[in-house]
Design a protein around this nucleic acid. Structure first.
Ligand SMILES: [Mn+2]
Ligand SMILES: [Mn+2]
Ligand SMILES: [Mn+2]
Ligand SMILES: [Mn+2]
Lengths: 245, 245
DNA sequence: AAGCAGATTTTGGCATACCTCAATAGTAAC
DNA sequence: GTTACTATTGAGGTATGCCAAAATCTGCTT
């Protein structure tokens, strides 16, 4: 049996692929936010996809008929095993493409999201495999988002938002992931050196969810103040034993 | 004014792009075959696109309304200046992608046509520009098909089918272009070394449109016999002054 | 505890973009 | 002019979308 027979033979429409991906990502975001057993809501989907709620209900019914989601009317949807498998394939395409477009084609990390959104539906499984091997089997994309394996497994990431870290001038924290796709925000962060892999020191923080003071290690060492909001989008990797005090 | 404003703002559907490209290519093929002022026929389009003739009539009417083709009912279509400009953009995407997929990604010349057919609709103008510059502003694709410029101009190629060349054991001919996309045929030709840029000697030919005997210069010099049919798909470049007798 | 108000979801009617098939209309060649 | 193609038309299908009305849920007020 060939590689990803599933996607090939099911021949999903672009719309279906987008719905599955959006359901997956909304579910993931809810989990990250601590919601337990998060079903995805019709309005959330409508918002994410830029369509009317009525359109979502219609599509959800088709997805449920096709066995890709479980739908409890008025309570939201849930991916089935098959649905999640397919969603992860699209996510894999998207993230491999983002990395390829930055590393090989030379785009900035703020330019690749929209392009990957279009290309993720158009690349062949063979192209996917080539990208993967050209990049050496990468596990994260330019924003630090984990890339699902060909088999549909996600590297488990243990990470905490910077906004929840305690100041410690003696310990460097490593940015693992940046949870936004907004072009201007990405450019702002890159300007400060706040990108995945960067080591930063959390110098202090103002009370009442006020700004955080950070210094980027290896930079010109100027401290920067960033908003609580922005800090909550920066995922800090689990404490790095290689960098003690 | 930015680069290719046209395609961006018109936001053509994939179907429309495919129709325009097919009309352009059928027109081109007819011209190559010597037909004068060739309008493209409904059945020809239906055949090329794999749809029913009735579907073609319907789409043609929309394209005519949008000013992309001229339609003389019962006589066929013709691209308008705008339509041809757009068709050339799609062709440019297609051929740049084919070359990129072979040269950079490592696919064989027999594997890239279908992939380019899907990707040509999905790449951004920026990606197009990057591919062009990564490849150094190429003028022909892996099959020797000319790549339209960003401005929509085609390098004029003077070429003659090998099937119409006179044998001349003392003169090397250069293959400029291979006029097929059939996977198995492309593999056969590559196996014989009959690819664009190859120098060959036409040793002789059997009468009644029979096989042609050719030798590939720099090969193991074994002569090969190829059918008249296949020879008619090989375009020979205008006589090369660098390679006398 | 019941019920009401507001928000959310679904439904039903309709639109657009393509597509097919079969019937009709037009063209061209003998 | 009849005939054999070829093209167009018309009826109807699927996929997706929107809008507005009806249904349902939920939390707040009493
Ligand atoms: Mn998408
Ligand atoms: Mn990403
Ligand atoms: Mn295409
Ligand atoms: Mn080609």
């Amino acid at each position: 049996m060939p590689k990803s027979a599933l996607r090939q033979q099911l021949n999903l429409s672009e719309a279906v692929e987008d719905y599955l991906k959006a359901i997956y990502q909304l579910h993931e975001a809810a989990q990250r936010a601590g919601e337990t057993s998060a079903r995805v809501t019709t309005t959330a989907l409508a918002g994410a996809l830029g369509v009317a709620p009525g359109s979502v209900t219609g599509m959800i019914k088709k997805l449920a008929d096709d066995g890709l989601v479980n739908h409890r009317p008025y309570y939201g949807v849930d991916l089935t095993a098959t649905g999640e498998r397919l969603a992860l394939e699209i996510v894999r395409h998207h993230r491999l493409l983002e990395l390829y477009l930055t590393l090989v084609v030379g785009f900035g990390w703020d330019e690749v999201h929209e392009q990957a959104d279009a290309l993720e539906h158009a690349i062949s499984e063979e192209f996917e495999d080539r990208i993967d091997s050209i990049l050496g089997g990468p596990t994260v994309d330019p924003h630090g988002d984990p890339i699902p394996s060909k088999e549909g497994l996600l590297p488990e990431m243990v990470a905490l938002p910077l906004s929840q870290c305690a100041p410690d001038a003696a310990r460097a924290l490593v940015i693992a992931r940046v949870l936004t796709q907004a072009t201007d925000l990405l450019r702002y962060l890159a300007g400060l050196g706040l990108v995945p892999g960067a080591r930063i020191v959390l110098l202090g923080r103002e009370p009442f969810d006020g700004p955080l003071h950070v210094r980027v290690v290896g930079d010109d060492d100027t401290p920067h103040a960033i908003s609580f909001q922005v800090a909550s989008l920066l995922s800090i990797a689990a404490p790095d034993p290689d960098t003690p005090h």
